[in-house]
Each structure stands twice: as structure tokens, then as C-alpha cells.
Design a binder for these strands. Structure first.
Length: 576
RNA sequence: UGGGGAAUGGUGUAACGGUAGCACGGCUGACUCUGGAUCAGCUAGUCGGGGUUCGAAUCCCUGUUCCCCAGCCA
């Protein structure tokens, strides 16, 4: 109420206050009213059972950013309540990915550290008659839950005396019963229209070794019981999560209220706010499907550059700045939509355009001999490292009599809109000379094997003293100086922007793009990158942004294409 | 015949009773030693039907469509 409303009719200069998304609007109000009497606290609660993808990055980006913007803090908490699925390895990978994205957590937490506290809360509920031990089989429990339209039925064990429940629960904990033989359930309402409220299971027996607590426990809390308590214990004020937990919120509220009933010191009651999870065109985001892609060999592992995993995107050459910019632009809402991959591409190009050094490299080499250039001569030409950043300086690029240019940059019989090299035509070699094609050399089958050209020594550096213009500038490399390289050209993993859109009886795999990876083994790159470290970003002039692959080394240089450059010529071609 | 959510250009997102705006995409053109970048312009939207109001994306009624929920997963 005290904040000035956004005046629509006022001076535009005064209207630049960015509008807040619905979550930040709530948090801002809460801060304004000092609702919590403490700085706000958020958390990102991954289960350490897999790799993070860009959908997670959206979620934890909100968690961290909201805390930061409103002067609070965000915890990283591993939701490790299922020892059968979780591994230490993922804890490290998740921490790395979050740090790579540039976020810092305040406290590193583990749900498993709260097992004792949760157990004590459970005992309190039993004592209040709000939880009971159920001896039914999993199948019986499922049957008793009813359906979406039919109410459930009470368990025959539902009205066990408190003392018996207490005794049984202790003995569950002590390991007296086998897995699956008994559970602890909340006593709520088996006819509740919300299935989550039909006496949900709180604890199951699992004689499994936990990656952190070892064999200390043989009963483990269910997510629904544990999650709200974890937030409570950490004093989380705003528990931000995805839409599918909206149905669970009444249960979390019920648990906290149940614990606080008749309790002298009530425990903290967080506020959960749900937002739509993130979808991206041309990819899948579910853990199950990503796992399937990896396990069935459709991609080469979790960090395959075609994967939407953060490790995959990192390997592909996406930068955290670009990903964050993208996620910011996508925004936060409750509408379940699908963001456009083209926007992601726009964001990487924008970032890399500013920071990536330019180099020249040829993917499909076509040999060019400059017939009037002295044999054996080499000269170093000055090339600008980044026209967007004068401070990046220049570098020398070797020029000699034999060069490579891109096969696509020559046509023997070009259409009118083709500006590049053709017989008799003059073009510029970037930072070098104007050359004119004088002869096309072919093999017996008529394939073009070599071009013979002349150069104009007066055009050194790329400008003609007489002021004459050329329509095209080509990238090139000196044959004798070029580095051999493998270049991986990545395209969309799926041919359909919605991989789930399939013919009857098919699944998303039928939409896999057979050309999602084109490996080019015969590439020629200028020598300046000989010692470049894996992960280094470049723009190959006129081709796109690339990054040195993880497995690249000076003896075997491998580049991954992050994204191509916008190419209006190519676009015109595909339109025809 | 259950409950919970959501619908604004092709896509994502603003506007919170007062001129439907921004970004990406698409399409023009300018400029250019990257057919890149940059710059300028154009394109295109309130799910349908009723109401309330001087005025509705916004409030009310009604219909439609889509998403989530029946793990001892998270």
C-alpha cells in the first residue's frame, strides 16, 4: 500500500520500474509487512539421484535470486530420504552445476540430518492419535485408497490404541520387522477428495544403507512427511516449488498444524508457493526420458552436448550468463508453456558475440592455390580478435600460397543471389587480399578438387587502394599452417519442437533427429588455438560459436558447435 | 459422477477497472572487411457466450480447452 503504483500515464522515464512476477510480488508484500519477523529464507531441495538440467536451473535460479533480491538467503538442501536411489556422486555434480551457474548457497543441508527430529515429531503425532501403524500390504493400501472418484476405506488397523502404535513404531525403527511389512500413516480422512489426504504413508521400512547415515536407520520418511519439516527446521519462509505440489500443500499444512496442536513451542510454518515448471522446445526434460536417452545410447552420456543437462550445455558451450539471461527473459508464472529454443540461441549469441575471440577455420576444405604468390613465402597478417571488444587486440594469422576455403563459398555456376567466389569473380579473403578465381581443377569424376586464383598485392589487409568493392569476404586458413581438427556440429535432438507429439503407438524416440550430430573430421583451423584449454569459447568467423571439447588436446583438437551464426543467406535458401 | 490449477500475437511474458506493452521469432530496408553484429520499420493477441460499468484482459455468470493427482518415488 505504501509503494507507489505504476503510473501508466506518467512520464515513461518514471515508469521503468520492472514489474514483479507473482512470486516476487508476494515476497515483496511479506517483506513490506514484516510477516515473518526475520529475513526471508528459500531453499533448493534436489534429490541426489541424477544430473541437473536447465529446468532445475530455472527453479534454483528463482530460489537463489529471490533470496538475494529481498535480503535473505537460500540453502542448498539435499532431499536424501530414499537410500535406494541416491548416491554421493550426484551430490558433488549438483553442487558443481549450481556453482557453475554462479549461485552461492548459505547453508549446505541434508534431509538425512533431520531424521531424528522427524522421528520425534512422528512420535508426537502418534501420541496425539494422529498417526497409526498399518500392517496392510502395499497392495491393500493401494486398494483402500479408493480412486479419483470413489472414496477410500479405512484400514482395519486405523483405530489401534496409541500405546500399541508407539510400541510398533519403536520396533519398526529397531529393525524388528522386514521391509514392506508395516508403515506409519497419518490419520486424516480416507474419503478426502484430495487423494494426498487419504491417510498418507509417513514412514516405510527400508533395510538399506544410506549414503550419509549408513545403517543408523531402517525406517525412512516419505517425501510428503519430510519435506515440509525440512523447510520448517531451516526456517524457510517461502518454499518455492513446481505446480504438481499444489495438491500436496494442504497435507504439508496439516502436518505442521498437527505437530503444533497442543504444543507449547509451535514449530515454524513455511509458506509454499508453486510455479510452472520449465519446458523447452526440441527437447525433453523428464528425468526418466533423459535417462532413457543415455541408457539406450541415443546420446553419448549425461553430458552429451545435445542434452539439456547443465553438464551437457556446458560442454556444448553455453555460458551460465547466457542461460541466466534466457531464464530471466522466460520469467515466472503459473502457466505451463514451452519456451522457445530460439530465444536460448539468441541469448548465447548475444553473450558470446561480446566475449568470444574470433578465429578462422574451415569445416569442409577446398584447396586454393594463389598462382601469383611466391612459392615458399609466408607472411603474418593482422586479424582483429573481437570487433565488439577493442581491448581484445589483434593476432597474427599466417598467409601463404596454398590455402583452404569453405567448399560452400565457391560455386562454379552460381545463382544470382550468391555473392561468394565463382570463376572470374573477385572476393576478399578476410584480413588478407582480394583474390580472383582463374581456374577450376577437377578430378576424373568431375569433382572440384582445387581452385587456382590470383591475388592483388595492392589489397593487403583487405582494402583496395582504388576503392573498388567486392561483394563477399571469405574465411580461410593457410594450408601449411593449419591445425587439423574434428568439429562436432550439433543440431536439435528432436525433429519436432514437441518431442511428445507422435503418431499413434509411437513414443518420443520416433522424433529423434538422425542428424543431431554431424562429425566433421577433416577441418582446418588457424594455428592460434593450438594450446587452447577445453571449454574455451570461440567464434569461427561466418560459421558460429564453438567451444573446445572436454576431451580435446593439442594432439587431437575437438570443437563443439554451440550455435551457428544467424545466416540470412542460408535462410533464403531454405525458403526456396 | 472427485479434487486442485491454468488460459493474452507463432513463442514466452506485462498491464491488477482507464491508449493491450516488451522480448524472441517472422518480414522489409539501412549499414557492414563476418550474408555476423548494429540500426530503423512492419507483422501478429485478450479461449467462447452472456452480463455489471461511461469504460472490462481485469469484476460477475456460464461454457470450452489444457495440465496435475489413485508410489511403501521425489
Amino acid at each position: 500500500m505504501t509503494t507507489a503504483p505504476n503510473n501508466q500515464t506518467g512520464n515513461p522515464a518514471e515508469n521503468n520500474k520492472p514489474s514483479l512476477d507473482f512470486i516476487r510480488t508476494i515476497v515483496a508484500q511479506d517483506c513490506e509487512s514484516n510477516k515473518w519477523g526475520q529475513p526471508i529464507v528459500t531453499r533448493f531441495p534436489p534429490e541426489p539421484n541424477g544430473y541437473l538440467h536447465i529446468g532445475h536451473a530455472k527453479a534454483f535460479g528463482i530460489d537463489f535470486a529471490v533470496a538475494q533480491e529481498f535480503g535473505g538467503h537460500c540453502n542448498l538442501r539435499f532431499d536424501d530420504t530414499n537410500p535406494c536411489k541416491e548416491e554421493e556422486e550426484f551430490v558433488h555434480a549438483i553442487k558443481d552445476d549450481i556453482a557453475w551457474m554462479g549461485w552461492k548457497w548459505k547453508n549446505l543441508c541434508f534431509a538425512s540430518d533431520y531424521f531424528q527430529q522427524m522421528y520425534e515429531y512422528a512420535v508426537e503425532l502418534i501420541e496425539k492419535g494422529l498417526a497409526y501403524v498399518d500392517d496392510q500390504s502395499p497392495e491393500d493400501i493401494r486398494q483402500g485408497r479408493g480412486t479419483l472418484t470413489a472414496p477410500g476405506t479405512n484400514s482395519p488397523y486405523r483405530d489401534r490404541p496409541v500405546e500399541e502404535n508407539l510400541d510398533l513404531f519403536h520396533r519398526m525403527r529397531n529393525g524388528e520387522f522386514p521391509d514392506g511389512s508395516r508403515v506409519l500413516r497419518a490419520k486424516i480422512d480416507m474419503a478426502h477428495p484430495n487423494l494426498n489426504m487419504r491417510d498418507p504413508v509417513m514412514y516405510r521400512i527400508l533395510h538399506a544403507t544410506h549414503h550419509r547415515s549408513g545403517d543408523k536407520w531402517c525406517i525412512y520418511p516419505m517425501y510428503d512427511w519430510a519435506h515440509g519439516l525440512e523447510d520448517s527446521i531451516e526456517n524457510v519462509t517461502h518454499s518455492l516449488c513446481s505446480l504438481e505440489f499444489e495438491n500436496h500443500r494442504p497435507l504439508y499444512d496439516w502436518f505442521i498444524d498437527a505437530i503444533n496442536k497442543d504444543r507449547p513451542q509451535p514449530i515454524h510454518h513455511p509458506q509454499q508457493i508453486e510455479f510452472a515448471r520449465f519446458n523447452l522446445t526440441y527437447t525433453v526434460m523428464s528425468k526418466r526420458k533423459l535417462r532413457q536417452l543415455v541408457e539406450e545410447g541415443h546420446v553419448n552420456g549425461w553430458d552429451d552436448p545435445r542434452m539439456p543437462t547443465l553438464c551437457g550445455m556446458r560442454r556444448r558451450g553455453f555460458t551460465p550468463q547466457a542461460i541466466r539471461d534466457f531464464l530471466d527473459r522466460v520469467g515466472v508464472a503459473k502457466f505451463v508453456g514451452t519456451s522457445d529454443y530460439a530465444l536460448l540461441e539468441h541469448c548465447v549469441r548475444t553473450h558470446l558475440n561480446k566475449v568470444a575471440p574470433r578465429i578462422m577455420g574451415v569445416l569442409n576444405p577446398l584447396k586454393v592455390v594463389i598462382t601469383n604468390y611466391p612459392e615458399g613465402q609466408t607472411e603474418q597478417l593482422d586479424a582483429v580478435n573481437n570487433p565488439e571488444d577493442p581491448a581484445a587486440g589483434t593476432r597474427p594469422v599466417p598467409f601463404s600460397r596454398e590455402l583452404y576455403i569453405e567448399q560452400d563459398d565457391f560455386m562454379e555456376d552460381p545463382p544470382k543471389k550468391f555473392f561468394r567466389l565463382a570463376p572470374g569473380r573477385e572476393v576478399r579473403l578476410r584480413y588478407a587480399y582480394f583474390i580472383t578465381c582463374t581456374e577450376v581443377v577437377k578430378d576424373d569424376e568431375g569433382n572440384i578438387t582445387e581452385l587456382r586464383c590470383t591475388y592483388d598485392p595492392e589489397t593487403k589487409g583487405g582494402n583496395a587502394p582504388d576503392g573498388r568493392k567486392v561483394k563477399a569476404t571469405l574465411h580461410w586458413v593457410s594450408a601449411q599452417h593449419a591445425l587439423n581438427a574434428q568439429v562436432n556440429i550439433y543440431n536439435h535432438l528432436f525433429t519436432n519442437e514437441d518431442p511428445e507429439k507422435v503418431e499413434e503407438g509411437q513414443d518420443f524416440l520416433s522424433n529423434i533427429n538422425p542428424d543431431s550430430l554431424e562429425i566433421q573430421l577433416n577441418c582446418k583451423i588457424e594455428p592460434s588455438i593450438a594450446q587452447a584449454a577445453p571449454g574455451t569459447h570461440y567464434q569461427l568467423e561466418r560459421l558460429g560459436y564453438f567451444c573446445i571439447d572436454l576431451e580435446s588436446n593439442p594432439d587431437r583438437i575437438i570443437l563443439n558447435r554451440t550455435v551457428n551464426l544467424k545466416d540470412t543467406y542460408a535462410k533464403q535458401q531454405t525458403k526456396q
